[in-house]
Design a protein around this nucleic acid. Structure first.
Lengths: 267, 267
DNA sequence: TAGTGGTCTAGACCACATT
DNA sequence: ATGTGGTCTAGACCACTAC
């Protein structure tokens, strides 16, 4: 694309997107679309960055120019840019400008179950339901879920497999309100979060602790691993968008087949 | 505080902060402060939530009222609220209102070193520098750091101890530009990120992969653990705020003494 | 001194949920 | 029908950076 070394910053040539070039980014907005303008802009800008149309190190034109160019107001431009700054694709510095810093695909930790992850990767996971019962909540479970001790909760233990290999043992406690009418067949056929979403429960906040452990006797038998084989352990408390604590999870994953990837962006 | 069950939502009584009550939150703004108004508001609102002055489940007054109450514009109110929504303290629903959902302390995964974490927890970590040398970058290192293969890089291996117990073996590769003049003594006396920050390098984006493994012979000897003892493994590529890839890290932590905690907020 | 992003305002109109 | 948050505008002034 057309770039001009029209000035120098920090001793390095500065390449800026000019009007003519930016038009060729093909950035256009649909004003009747239900998708907000700032998001349309952010998506097209991100596409231009990820495709390499705008290279790492390039500067964007300033916000006023972009507003004129794209025929939107400056706050709308700023909001679009902010979206990409939050994702780590752009950096803004006052008095300097807005610069492309990364074109990598971002995969933050998301609120999804292992099933969703595997489906997205194109594998076809199978689920064995090892336990599916109602039990009285013990002290720790009750405190985590924010309910009185002894309240009935749904306890589920599942094993996830991909073809032959067992990948994970997943132990969950859920409120009866949330999971009371989930059937064992439903558990076999899909992810837990998917089932919850179908019931109108929208996961929103989770507190999660990740660690490691060696497989104990029961785990090694269930997963077909050697005693002491390395496992990734995840404990999680999940709340839905209404602030209800819905799920308590204690999962172990075969470390050979499971890793957690995340992108961290500092302020 | 004064709350009125002035209407009902979803069959549950709705408690809303009224003007008189909100004044008693003591929310005031300093217009001459360098701290942005929206941040001042967010902090005071967060304090009110965390102290319990506003309880979980309570609704805030609507944005227009809050703007009048706090004598700021509606966009400023919205930005303050958005900050707490991002942190998972509040939930907004169009047509409904803004509700407190959580008062828990948030501790997201941050860009810090283990040293910083331990210092924050009040422990006093010691560091052994096992390796500190310049080497030619191999293919993987070079690709990760975005430099040509064979370029000189700084290679550091450290062991972190708390009193007697060894906690971690940390293996890092850094660009000479970033870490060329760091001394072995400096490494012994503090965290790596602290040293980088002192040199004006501000960590900004990191891609991180977390897994588990059993300790191999070298690791078990270095950490004083049994062969095959569970370890948390972290691989990380870090970029600073100028988009420079600065650090490649491969760390292993004793799983008995180390866990990763994070809060995940959807949307 | 000039140019950039950061903050803030005072409106407007809309989509959505509830009554 | 009403009230809520969601979006968008067209300005204004300021703080910071670089030259």
């Amino acid at each position: 694309m057309v770039l001009t070394p029209d000035r120098v910053t920090n001793g390095r040539p500065r390449r800026a997107i000019l009007e003519s070039a930016a038009r060729h980014l093909g950035v256009t907005v649909q004003r009747n679309s239900p998708v907000p303008l700032y998001h349309q802009l952010a998506q097209q800008l991100a596409a231009a960055i990820e495709s390499g149309t705008i290279a790492k190190g390039d500067f964007l034109s300033n916000e006023i120019e972009l507003a004129e160019l794209w025929q939107v107001s400056r706050p709308t431009v700023r909001r679009a840019i902010q979206e990409l700054v939050d994702d780590g694709l752009l950096v803004r510095r006052r008095g300097v400008g807005t610069q492309v810093v990364s074109a990598e695909v971002r995969r933050p930790v998301r609120l999804s179950s292992l099933y969703d992850d595997l489906v997205e990767e194109g594998r076809s996971p199978k689920t064995d339901v090892l336990t599916h019962e109602r039990v009285a909540a013990d002290k720790i479970t009750a405190e985590s879920l924010g309910i009185p001790v002894g309240t009935e909760v749904v306890h589920i233990v599942r094993r996830r497999r991909a073809i032959r290999t067992a990948l994970a043992i997943m132990c969950n406690w859920l409120t009866v309100e949330a999971a009371g009418d989930i059937t064992t067949d439903q558990l076999r056929s899909g992810g837990l979060y998917e089932l919850l979403r179908a019931k109108g429960i929208r996961p929103r906040i989770a507190r999660q602790t990740i660690g490691a452990a060696g497989a104990d006797e029961e785990q090694s038998a269930q997963l077909g691993l050697a005693l002491g084989a390395p496992l990734v352990t995840v404990r999680r408390v999940m709340q839905d968008d209404l602030g209800r604590t819905v799920e308590l999870a204690s999962h172990v994953y075969d470390a050979l087949h499971y890793r957690l990837e995340m992108t961290i962006v500092e302020d």
